[in-house]
Nucleic acid binder design. Structure first.
Length: 107
DNA sequence: CTCTTGACCGACG
DNA sequence: CCGTCGGCCAAGA
């Protein structure tokens, strides 16, 4: 069972439109949190095993880095995440999102 | 309740 | 560009 906090995070993830991405920080802000809120967001997504029902692959770090996927900061899953993003029109180079500012979706 | 850890961020040198 | 430090959220032990 997910915690209420996790539910909020997942709900926001679903709101992200196709071809757009968001960041841990923006999600945290949207939740009304401040400071280290994005760290808690990261934990929530890590606990998310039902991907891609929840499009957590559209959530990246604030600097445009991919971040992590399926509980890993690097590995096969990350490649999968990149592929999914590129399928949706978000180009990724060297684990960073191209035109990140343009693709960034704010709530 | 206390302590640790995490898919993080921003500032500084 | 890279390593280091401060910050101060949520969940689990």
């Amino acid at each position: 069972m997910p915690t209420p906090f996790q539910n909020r995070v997942y709900a926001l993830c679903k709101k992200i439109p196709r071809g757009k991405v968001s960041t841990y920080k923006e999600i945290g802000k949207a939740l009304g949190g401040r400071g280290q809120i994005y760290r808690a967001v990261g934990m929530a997504l890590k606990n998310n095993t039902h991907a891609p029902v929840v499009p957590c692959h559209r959530v990246v770090a604030s600097n445009g880095a991919i971040g992590g996927y399926h509980g890993s900061t690097r590995g096969t899953f990350i490649e999968k995440k990149i592929k999914l993003l590129q399928q949706e029109g978000v180009l990724v180079k060297d684990n960073k999102i191209i035109h990140f500012k343009k693709k960034l979706y704010r709530f």
